[in-house]
Amino acid sequence: MEAISIMDGLVLTVVSMLVVFAVLTALWGITEWTAKLVGKETPPVAAPQKNQTPVATQASQLVANPKHQLVAELMALTLASQDQPNKKLEIHVSIRIK
């Protein structure tokens, strides 16, 4: 078996790290590209009016988001069945409370 010098080891390490970073960058780019193709753009947020407070502006701009609603429902079910893992729960109505 041939011995590897320190310089050969360093070159191998640098090249290997560059390959890993290149693959990760390519995967990140593919993910971003796919998200742009599949995802929907969010509407721009309007600037707050002078007579409104920031809290009132945020509350008036909240819109129902199906993803957020699903996460809230799943968390509610998780918290409700935390002590009894075999208990089956079902959501009949989902109402947003402001």
Rank of each mutant, 00 (worst) to 15 (best):
I30E: 05
Q58W: 00
R96T: 11
V71W: 09
A72I: 08
N51M: 08
E41T: 09
T25S: 13
Q58D: 14
V45C: 05
I95Y: 00
E2K: 06
L12A: 15
A80E: 06
P48F: 11
M1A: 14
Q52R: 01
I91G: 03
L77C: 10
W33C: 11
I97Q: 07
P43V: 03
L77G: 05
L10G: 03
A47R: 07
L62K: 00
G9M: 02
L77A: 06
Q49I: 05
Q49N: 03
V63G: 01
P66Q: 06
V71L: 08
I97C: 01
L12P: 00
S16H: 13
K67D: 10
P54D: 11
M7F: 07
S94N: 14
Q69V: 02
M75T: 15
K36H: 03
S16K: 06
N51L: 14
R96I: 09
N65C: 02
I91C: 09
M75K: 15
V15F: 00
S81M: 05
A47I: 14
L77W: 01
Q58T: 12
S81Q: 04
T78K: 13
R96A: 13
A72Q: 04
L70R: 13
A72W: 01
P54E: 08
N86I: 05
A22H: 05
I91E: 00
A46D: 05
S60N: 06
S5N: 14
G29R: 10
V55R: 15
E2R: 04
T34H: 02
P66G: 04
P66H: 06
